[in-house]
């Protein structure tokens, strides 16, 4: 074995060792559930960075009530508005927290909710624009006491 092979073998071992750890989160969402939820929002499009401001605490002491706000920069006119805002929490058994369809009449693209987080998790916000483009923002929220009891 040369050095390169050793490194590859070590990486493979690491992946195997990590797998049981992942499985122990019995009620956490599987990664493909998250990918599925994202695809349902984006329709397979790659989300661009920017325009979406996601506000969430870096540390949530109580996972049962985590305030999250999403603001999307948009003129909100008939020709250019935000069609939908979706909030996802990767590690929740049901990653989709809420999705909202908007109209140009809303005046501003803003949404704020209080959600549960079962454990420390990335929280994502997606905005689909009237021209079909998709913007996203992500923030990791550390949970001290989980909202899953």
């Amino acid at each position: 074995m040369n050095r390169r092979e050793v490194l590859i073998a070590a990486a493979a071992l690491g992946a195997v060792a990590a797998a049981p750890g992942l499985l122990s989160f019995a009620h956490a969402a599987e990664p493909d559930k998250v990918a599925e939820a994202i695809a349902a929002v984006t329709g397979g499009k790659t989300a661009q960075q920017g325009r979406v401001t996601l506000t969430a605490p870096a540390i949530a002491e109580n996972g049962a009530v985590v305030p999250v706000s999403v603001e999307v920069a948009s003129p909100m006119t008939e020709g250019d508005y935000v069609k939908s805002i979706t909030i996802l929490a990767d590690k929740n058994p049901q990653p989709r927290v809420i999705s909202v369809n908007l109209t140009p009449d809303n005046g501003a693209a803003y949404l704020s909710v209080r959600m549960r987080l079962g454990e420390t998790s990335p929280v994502r916000a997606y905005a689909v624009m009237s021209d079909g483009s998709v913007y996203a923002a992500e923030k990791s929220v550390k949970v001290t006491i989980g909202g899953c009891g």
């Binding site: 058994p93 809420i98 999705s99 909202v100 908007l102 501003a108 803003y110 909710v113």
Partner: peptide, 28 residues
């Protein structure tokens, strides 16, 4: 709805906290 016209259609998941709180923008 505002005056019978839908201004928001929301799909809520079970991850929202007890007594769901939702804040949204409105212009009339």
């Amino acid at each position: 709805e505002f005056e019978g016209e839908v201004v928001y259609a929301m799909n809520l998941g079970p991850s929202l906290s007890k007594d769901p709180y939702i804040e949204f923008s409105l212009a009339v």
